[in-house]
Nucleic acid binder design. Structure first.
Length: 260
DNA sequence: ATGTCGTAACGTTTACGA
């Protein structure tokens, strides 16, 4: 089972690049972030015509997540539990039946949190505490769980080309990294680091200042796997070359394969 | 280089978020 995550930075703007990538990469499941669209305006037919089931959790203008899946989706749930007043569309989960395992798949768009300190940073840390609580709940099922998306977290200095630039940024502050580790320490495996070590691996390059041409990137899109999912992991790769295409997102896809 | 991009709206330009 191939599962991809891709922050597309606007479905309208990616109306050509996204289907083109999908046709080449052929993921069984694609988790999308920043669709920046209400559910009614999401162009689901483009994906349904390619054999994908489409589940969206959108809002006007900003944020928004979606799941595309060639396999049937069951028990779809929208919104991260823990704050009924939170109106930002950043979380969706569903169960996918593989050939020999059911996988609970969660797509997330974690708050950016800048400027820090401030109310946006407080919201980020509170959201991460809710994520930790949900992750702990999911572990009790003792079934394969995948939580993937744009975490807006640079886990370590080796995950940035210029870590000094990010030292006081919400993506890299010690409190942000500690909140991310707190989730990992529940027993989750970060799929990319389970298979590839060392610096120079990024999933985001800013549009500004020629960041892509200078390879001035950061690694902020992650797959976290429960122990039962980690047992099934067979590959994890970043589709870096996508960033060099016409009208790219500022993020590139990352994907895993599971023997599920 | 205050350097870019995407979205919304009292829209043809500005504000905001990233």
């Amino acid at each position: 089972m191939k599962i991809a995550s891709f922050n597309i930075n606007g479905i309208k703007a990616r109306i050509e690049a996204l289907p083109a990538w999908l046709d080449e990469a052929e993921p069984d499941v694609a988790l999308l972030q920043e669709i920046k669209s209400i559910d009614e305006n999401f162009p689901r037919e483009i994906f349904e015509d390619r054999g994908y089931n489409v589940e969206t959790h959108g809002q006007k203008g900003f944020n928004g997540v979606a799941i595309l899946s060639r396999l049937p989706l069951e028990d779809v749930s929208r919104g991260l539990p823990g704050d009924p007043d939170d109106e930002q569309a950043r979380w969706i989960e569903a169960t996918v039946m593989g050939d020999h395992a059911a996988v609970r798949i969660c797509g997330l768009y974690l708050p950016n949190g800048n400027p820090a300190p401030g109310p946006k940073y407080d919201y980020k840390l509170a959201w991460m505490e809710r994520l930790r609580a949900r992750a702990q709940e999911l572990l009790t099922t003792e079934e394969p769980v995948v939580m993937a998306g744009d975490y807006n977290i640079i886990p370590q200095n080796e995950d940035a080309a210029r870590p000094e630039v990010w030292a006081r940024d919400a993506l890299a502050l010690p409190e942000s990294r500690a909140a991310f580790r707190r989730i990992l320490n529940l027993g989750f495996t970060e799929a990319f680091r389970a298979r590839t070590q060392g610096p120079g691996h990024y999933t985001f390059w800013d549009y500004q200042a020629g960041a892509w041409n200078k390879n001035d990137g950061i690694r902020i899109d992650h797959f976290l796997l429960s122990p039962q999912a980690a047992d099934l992991l067979t590959d994890c790769q970043i589709d870096k070359e996508i960033r060099a295409r016409e009208k790219p997102s500022d993020h590139v896809p990352i994907w895993i394969t599971l023997d599920a």
